[in-house]
Nucleic acid binder design. Structure first.
Lengths: 405, 405
DNA sequence: CTGAAAGCGCTTACAG
DNA sequence: CTGAAAGCGCTTACAG
């Protein structure tokens, strides 16, 4: 609780107003938040140039004056154009450094029409999947010295507002649409923007997009389960409650297709759509499966996150994994390895990187093919959550005979 | 595999170049990525105004002309200033709508000096924690019609480059620094910017910041374990390999303080710093604990993510949770509930929201106290991963006698 | 309530 | 290799 002298060099300031939000009435709360005496020294460090107050930003004119050249020359120097003599360059760079000069993006955008900014549209930010994809995007953009603008649109109202106002309109040079199942109207709206749009983790025919083959990925996973001997396999599709559907459809297609190829029946009772992120949904879905006359011996979850939730429910219900029930996920979530979850892996971050590269190439190079797409492979990573079904676990039809003829 | 007519109204275009990245040589890969015939119809929908090509953006002058008024009036109307007659307003709004007009942020920024953009600096994006915090930020900004710029700085080289170039300099009206332990030099650099900086999920004395009381939170968690009867409690601190340390120090302080209060010894052997996100680190840390002469009966992990990893290792080693080892986390990660992990919860998304509000108030209101801070409470959520220690599990000192006098 | 004009800080032909 | 000047698309006093 040291008072009044936290800042490095600030003058002592008027009393500080703290707002401590403490919910549960525990007497210790107020005690521990009582470091009230912080000194109010806002950014008055360093520059004593023109205005005495904060926000003293040098302009190109300041740099020009200091270096004894014209603004044109400063501009040329700082953009690295070669038509500047070494000595002039030196003087300009020195002056710029001394003034901590940074070019105003607003001003240069106005002239060039380029914002040096890429927008990404995403249904949320707090999942491992989208976080990783956006991390990939971010890495590429940083290297290209492009800024990343994030629009997270999480419900239908926001969605409507976004496509109505289209704030990315003149604010970015390109837009990345990640895991966002656009309606035809929304897509038309984006097209009308005249702004390059790249689809991330989803296939948009005729548009640049980066994705995996979900049908194929699901088939690989299914074949792994079939090869282990499973014949009754449930499929758990997650879905937001807001109408964002992701790649579910294609993974389900892969599921069906594999059953078909194996000559196994498609049993509607085994395919469930619990609402993701709501405990009840998954819990009830698992309950449904466990109470079937002929329960499955394996669950294929549409994503690792769902799979982990399923594992939690099964474990707390005393159902042994993989003894009584195998669980298979999709994504290769960071925690999948730790939780020993078998999964169909996809290179999420790389997908983000590829999408950013694609956007960059379309912006920089007008010759770039605006319909190019990049498809990444998936691979099954076998871990401890899948195993052959226990032969005597349930009264089951023989593996070679379909459950319902 | 439908060819050549995917787009709604585009003319048929030259052959499409696909780049399919397929790693594992499986013959099916190429087969499934062969939807090559997509039509190349880029955004030439709708507008046939001036330029025949894309990027036809109406300016305020266009709107003014169409509405038969001056640009000044268009500007005033669109910003909702009251000094415009209803009929003029109507005409302008109609014209703007018909032209799908959107104000150029670059141009207005240049005049007003405001970018209507907030930057967030973060050590990464792919964790539940930061994703949630940023999601909170994002929600508030969307409502305020402010844009969100994300700078993810993940290693030391990037870090140096960021503070060197400081790209947020003139690109945002404020900066949020999330989970980023700044060096004094870095902080000075930010201060010199003359840009409001708000600290998210960390306490910066004398600067606006939003956080929880980590010492107190850790103490609550510890007391829960003590009350259950544990006397040998390990503390697992996570750390990035890049020098970002988070709130570990304060949580460790809480750990020590509680031991002290309880008259228990601080045993260095029980406090570990495995490198997070690297399997080996955690695995070895757990191995160390399990091979002690007098192993702990509980592990307090600095975060839920670490706790979940620990649970995975323990489970795969056949150590029963909580029978042989209780596990306690910190955060209340989305999956903690599913995995039945006892934890010290903090309102992550709310922290992000509060930080964004703080930034907004500092920007909008010059009278706002620039040193205000907001502290959120934590609370223990008891779940199945903690229980009283098994009395006979290990030869242990009696609860009322410290392990090492 | 509305318009003409200046100017925000850059880049870009155009001269030299 | 360098400078003077025009102009990007807005907002903002300043008149009326």
């Amino acid at each position: 609780m040291s008072a009044a002298s936290d800042g490095p060099a600030g003058p002592t300031a008027p009393a500080t107003r703290d707002s401590a939000v403490n919910g549960d009435g525990n007497p210790e709360d107020t005690g521990t938040t009582a470091d009230t005496g912080d000194t109010a020294d806002t950014a008055d460090t360093g520059d004593t140039a023109d205005t005495g107050s904060l926000g003293t930003e040098a302009t190109m004119a300041d740099v020009a004056q200091r270096a004894g050249v014209s603004v044109s020359t400063v501009s040329r120097t700082l953009r690295g154009l070669s038509s500047v003599s070494p000595q002039t360059r030196g003087r300009v760079e020195k002056a710029a450094r001394e003034l901590s000069f940074a070019v105003s993006r607003s001003a240069s955008s106005l002239v060039t029409g380029k914002t040096r900014r890429i927008a990404v549209l995403t249904p949320h930010l707090d999942s491992w999947f989208l976080g990783s994809a956006i991390a990939g995007v971010s890495g590429v953009l940083r290297e290209a010295e492009l800024d990343l603008l994030v629009y997270s649109v999480t419900d239908l109202a926001q969605r409507g507002a976004f496509f109505d106002r289209l704030p990315a309109r003149r604010n970015a040079d390109a837009m990345l649409v990640a895991c966002f199942d656009l309606t035809p109207e929304e897509r038309a709206r984006l097209d009308a923007l005249g702004m390059p749009v790249v689809f991330v983790s989803q296939h948009a025919p005729g548009r640049p997009s980066v994705y995996i083959d979900d049908v194929d990925g699901a088939q690989r996973g299914m074949r792994h389960l079939l090869n282990l001997g499973h014949r009754r396999i449930a499929f758990l599709q997650s879905s937001d409650d807001t109408g964002f559907y992701w790649s579910s459809k294609e993974r389900l297609t892969g599921y069906r297709k594999t059953l078909e190829e194996a000559g196994l029946p498609y049993d509607e009772e085994l395919v469930l759509y619990p609402v993701a992120r709501h405990r009840r949904g998954i819990r009830e879905a698992v309950g449904h499966l466990l109470s079937l006359r002929n329960p499955p011996t394996a669950v294929f979850a549409e994503s690792d996150e769902v799979a982990i939730e399923v594992m939690g429910v099964l474990r707390s219900s005393g159902v042994d994994i993989p003894g009584r029930m195998s669980v298979l996920g999709f994504d290769d979530h960071h925690l999948a390895e730790w939780l020993d979850l078998t999964t169909v892996a996809q290179p999420v971050e790389e997908i983000g990187r590829a999408a950013a590269e694609l956007a960059r190439s379309i912006i920089d190079d007008p010759e770039a093919d605006p319909t190019r797409h990049v498809v990444f492979p998936t691979r099954v990573i076998p871990r401890g959550s899948t195993a052959p079904p226990a032969p005597s676990a349930h009264p089951e039809p023989r593996p070679d005979r379909p459950a319902r003829p």
